[in-house]
Amino acid sequence: MGSFIVCRLWHGLLVVLGVSFTVFAVTRLFGDPVSLMLPLSASAEQRMAFAQEIGLDQPLFVQFIRFLGDLATFDFGESLWQRRPAIEVVFERLPLTLMLIGTGLGFAILLSIPLGMIAALRPGGFLDRFIVSAGLLGLSMPQFWVGLLLIVVFSVQLKLLPTSGMGTPLHLVLPALTLALTPLARLTMLVRSSMIDELNQHYVRTVRAKGLPFTRILRVHTLRNILISYMTLAGWELITTLAGYTVVVETVFAWPGLGLTAVQAIQRGDLFLMQAIVFVIALLIVLINIVLDIVFKMIDPRINLN
């Protein structure tokens, strides 16, 4: 177990290094941070001074080492937009994003298991076909569009829920629902297909023949067997949500989390804040991956991830 964790940590470190290198290469080699961050009206002296301040006059190698050093100490520079350290902004907004993701994904997870099981109990039946069609539709709809339609229906027409922003728990409903849509569809499809496979196994026939109640078969046998693949997909959904979907959903609903902050940072040319967001999210993803791998290893000793 010890060597296993060390191996995962090493891999995580490589990922973080890869992200840092890519960010560095993109911003310093292909782009010009000075013209990105300073207004067009800045004078040549101001540009020079700014370039010197962020160390652009140094050789690339030195720049990269300094860049890594800054990242290691969580010193991402000052956000030009907010006039305070970028990392402060990130830590202020991160909890809001996590709250949104927790609500949305929690909803998707709670609902996907019963829905998938209902569909799997009678494959080809009415309920199954309904759930599969709805799932396919859910996978085909872009989230920003669903979010806007929800606003049109529930906020503009029915006037039941607020359109955007945050404050009351009601503000959380629409963004969380929108965020839940794609993961819910994918997880339900997974539960359905793996349940169908599992229920066709010979051991299920055996335990049914010996008279075990069906609910017990589901609870003790089949659900446990699909747990690993379910958790793999759920973890993957958590990661993709964290790394992308939230940006879109938060923009639609003006939810002041990290995703909206990223879009605003880009609009204002705030490269330092954007770097801080990408880096912190990358760290979170690495952490989630490590935790998931360890959990998998604990619940299924057959897994060999080395």
Partner: peptide
């Protein structure tokens, strides 16, 4: 491949596009 799969997808795309 493993390393790049763990990159923060859309955020990374946004950063790259905003620079390029």
């Amino acid at each position: 491949v493993d390393i790049q799969v763990s990159f923060p997808g859309i955020l990374m795309i946004l950063l790259i596009v905003s620079v390029l």
